[in-house]
Design a binder for these strands. Structure first.
Lengths: 383, 383
DNA sequence: CTGTTAGCGCCTTCAC
DNA sequence: GTGAAGGCGCTAACAG
């Protein structure tokens, strides 16, 4: 990691006349003459992609001059530079990033590893990463691990072969084990919501504990006294922290921790877990429930509908994440919002800072209580 | 596009002992001695990444022999090959795909352009693409265009600079205009659910018309006679086809086409469009509605809830797409399922076939009616 | 079977 | 200001 990072050529392409280039789809014939010229200059039919050398030949200069001109080097005559740039433009030259990468040793790519792209929680994070990365001239490789640690490290190696400048792993199953290997990898890795045990240096996460605490506090404020928690057994660290927030809230309120009110279904589907939790919680007399995440809450709600348990009249429900669906299910879900897009942004920011040789420190985002329709004061139906 | 494509080195890495390698996170010290050896051989502290030459030096052979051995060429003595592979393994050699790409002129990457990653419709398609691509040793670049044609072509160029082997564009806004440029680009592009006017050669799409027809037919079968349609003005081609399916169904049933029953709200949010459509449709006396997509239907349902319009008692609703949320909203949504994962798969398959120099033809997928709770026979409340 | 020689397309000293 | 030369890491003829 160089202390003084080079300019990203993808951000500062400097070919000139790019506005025209962007309009090819409106006036596709603008380049016709230029293409003919190119063909005349270089009649090889197989390899018609124009390189820096072709331009050099056409311009009657050396390829190094072309190289310089194209990257706006001050060490070249402004006039020849302009001519070269125009020529490049006309000939339809498109720089070969592969070749650039080989010599500069930077690819301006980052690898992003997710458990699943179609997870409504993750997609916004990816969007945040992609947004910042693109803006900074980086491209992102996306690969899913399907929550399999073996896959995860296989992907890391695959990214490594591609010489990505850095990686971001969402909900990593390997997590802190990267630390040991990091120096060997020589590639910075930032973790978002790490789901493996242990601490990891570069990470972005959400404040699970105070989030859960705020959720339970909300139920307490409404007057609930028998509050349940539906956990997630396959995301141990965040589940532990959310459970801790739950306990903390009860403790503060002087309420006992009742194990009947805490359930950890064993399926690997959030929705199914929610569905399975309902009956036990109702039996235990819960009037309010904090769920590990929105999908769990939604699953619980679908089951409630089938069972004739009314939400929120019979039991109030609080989710976690604030996925899009949470506000258009019926009743709309009260939840703890994770600023996912911002978290993606932050992770990308941290990675780029790392690449620029800067010091970085972990970021923990607070979550925000969003009150909707799924929570009300407890009814007196139970008597 | 070579007629006889080379083997993908990412799929056939052939370093041997990969099982051990995959276990580094369990026993991270296994490579220690090898690393020491490497260090001893090449004490340069800055550039400690081992290359093919380092291995050659360590093994006492030429780098081309190493290259051959590493790619399982039969032109090398099995014993030395084994030795070299082991050495590579021990020294922690990781092939440089960038360098490989430069010489082979293939990057084994594909670029995927989406309108938005967090669109629940799109994410499954991306998943399908990624699944097949990964399996075939390709990596995927993901970039979003935010439905902006200018962005879309900018991304195409950016991918072009990176020398992706091919691209897939979901819901393209440029569409058939690629055709003209395609020969210049020299990179195959496959379109999924093209949303620009005009025909395009390589495309994967869903049969909008018969889908919509089936949806309306379902309502007709239930006994509905006043059936509305909520369209989408910013996806003209598919909207036109779905509308055509709607008309077709009415025509077959001998029902007139009533413009009061067809509404195209002008916002750019599916959900908001659904919300805005409700009042007019109710005023027009619709008892059943086909919506452009599930989010539109869900928006319409949220508005109905607010207005006291009961679904499905007062009006039956049919969506399109079958996004995850459609089955856990209340009432669960009757919809036309698009096989999104398979469509992503098909697009990737088509692209790889193109890269292998094979002939391909368009694919159109049928959609499947999924009946849930949002549709029932019309009540007689209206009298 | 193996080593030598050329590049792939580009950037970068180093001379002129 | 500009060109010549070397090299990034690897593959692919071509000779031995």
């Amino acid at each position: 990691m160089p202390a003084n990072p080079p300019l990203n050529p993808l951000l500062h392409p400097a070919e000139g006349l790019t506005i025209l280039d962007r309009l090819w789809y409106i006036i596709p014939w603008v380049h016709t003459c230029a293409r003919d010229k190119c063909m005349a200059t270089k009649p090889d039919p197989k390899k018609s992609r124009v390189s820096i050398k072709d331009i050099a030949r056409a311009a009657g200069v050396s390829h190094s001059t072309v190289s310089r001109a194209l990257r706006n080097s001050p060490l070249v005559n402004p006039e020849t530079a302009a001519y070269i740039r125009q020529l490049a433009q006309e000939m339809g030259y498109i720089p070969n990033v592969i070749a650039q990468s080989l010599v500069t040793q930077r690819t301006y790519t980052i690898g992003v590893i997710v458990t699943s792209i179609s997870d409504p929680f993750i997609d916004r994070i990816v969007e945040g990463i992609e947004d910042l990365a693109t803006r900074e001239g980086y491209s992102v490789f996306l690969c899913s691990s399907h929550a399999d640690p073996g896959r995860e490290i296989a992907v890391v190696e695959s990214f490594h072969r591609r010489r990505v400048d850095g990686m971001i792993v969402i909900a990593s199953r390997v997590g802190s084990l990267y630390t040991e290997r990091l120096q060997e990898l020589q590639v910075p890795i930032v973790l978002i919501n790490n789901q493996a045990e242990g601490e990891y240096i570069y990470s972005v996460s959400v404040d699970d504990e105070s989030g859960a605490l705020a959720g339970v506090q909300h139920l307490l404020d409404l007057g609930h006294r028998r509050i349940g928690y539906v956990g997630c057994h396959f995301r141990p660290p965040s589940n532990r922290r959310r459970l801790e927030g739950y306990r903390q809230a009860l403790r503060r309120a002087g309420l006992p921790y009742l194990s009947d009110l805490v359930v950890h279904p064993r399926t690997f589907s959030d929705i199914e877990n929610g569905r399975q939790a309902l009956d036990q919680l109702v039996a235990a007399g819960a009037t309010g429930v904090l769920c590990y995440n929105d999908r769990t809450a939604i699953g619980l709600m679908t089951r409630a509908r089938e069972q004739g348990v009314r939400i929120p009249d019979d039991v109030s429900v609080v989710g976690f994440d604030d996925i899009e669906a949470s506000w258009y299910v019926s009743p709309a879900l009260t939840t703890l919002r994770q600023p996912r897009f911002e978290m993606g942004h932050a992770a990308a920011e941290m990675l780029l800072a790392l690449l620029a040789g800067e010091e970085v420190s972990d970021r923990v985002f607070p979550c925000q209580l969003v009150v909707r329709e799924s929570t009300t004061p407890p009814g007196d139906r139970r008597t």
